[in-house]
Write a protein that binds this DNA or RNA. Structure first.
Lengths: 146, 146
DNA sequence: TATTGTTATACTCTATAACTATA
DNA sequence: TATAGTTATAGAGTATAACAATA
């Protein structure tokens, strides 16, 4: 006897969360198979398009707190995927960019993650997938009333 | 100088997660203001429509592991919101249902959470909100290819 | 032998306070 | 004084192994 989930499925937060977990379960596979962690992947995608970002700028872009990025960036540097340089204008900041190895790796992983996401959402048409992405983006880019 | 988030915003998982966090930040307010935790709220909504569910059935419905529900259900019982009865047919199971106080509380909180979700998604029309909910639900109810 | 509820445990993710060095 | 990066730490959330009671 399956439970009646109707009341929960009316909640937008519940649906976002369940869909996120379903997509993540697929997308995480190529990430770990290539020796990365989820946070590393997100940081690397961001640095790929935005070389020279500081740690603080990554925090703003991803909505995470600075202390939670320290270990990830240190690991990325130890693995030779990211390098830290002194910022040219601000002695407090460190300028982050992918190494050549980092660029090679993230190019491949990004492609594999996109394929995994397509598999996880194979029940949607291309148009439905575009609609979904647009609606979701509007929720977190347009600020709430409160 | 805002970072170029274009590559991340192409990823469905990233968009689901950011939208989920934005909605959750609003929906959590009436939950904690009424002395509940997020997990308690979800369990209570489920029990409201499905009196008599066992702990294991709640795990199936919510996609969580049994050990992670033990503390929540114990707390709900201590607070007089949920009661455990021996299952009529299976001596191993415990039948869970809301108390009268639990029903009164979840009725109010559910209404307030719905209002909070509407505020968090006020930039969408009613039709767009329905479309979004439908697309998200299909992702986690229709199983992936793998 | 299998399942329910449970304990113990560990690992990840996230949040806050406080330090240091630079501005 | 304010900010960037960092340390230490604590709290959620989630996962697995193993046990007793029941099937």
């Amino acid at each position: 006897m399956p439970a009646d989930l109707h009341a929960l499925q009316e909640l937008i937060g519940y649906n976002c969360r369940r869909a996120y977990l379903a997509v993540r379960d697929q997308a995480i596979k190529p990430i770990v198979e290539n020796g990365l962690q989820r946070t590393w992947f997100t940081v690397m995608v961001l640095l790929h398009r935005n070389p020279g970002l500081s740690s603080r700028e990554i925090c703003w872009a991803l909505g995470v707190q600075p202390p939670n990025l320290v270990a990830s960036i240190a690991s990325l540097e130890e693995h030779g995927l990211v390098e830290r340089r002194p910022h040219s204008e601000d002695g407090r900041s460190l300028s982050l960019r992918l190494t050549a190895a980092g660029r090679r790796l993230i190019t491949r992983v990004e492609r594999e993650v996109e394929r995994a996401e397509l598999r996880a959402t194979a029940m949607l048409s291309d148009e439905e997938r575009d609609t979904l992405t647009d609606l979701l983006r509007r929720i977190y880019t347009e600020p709430p009333v409160d």
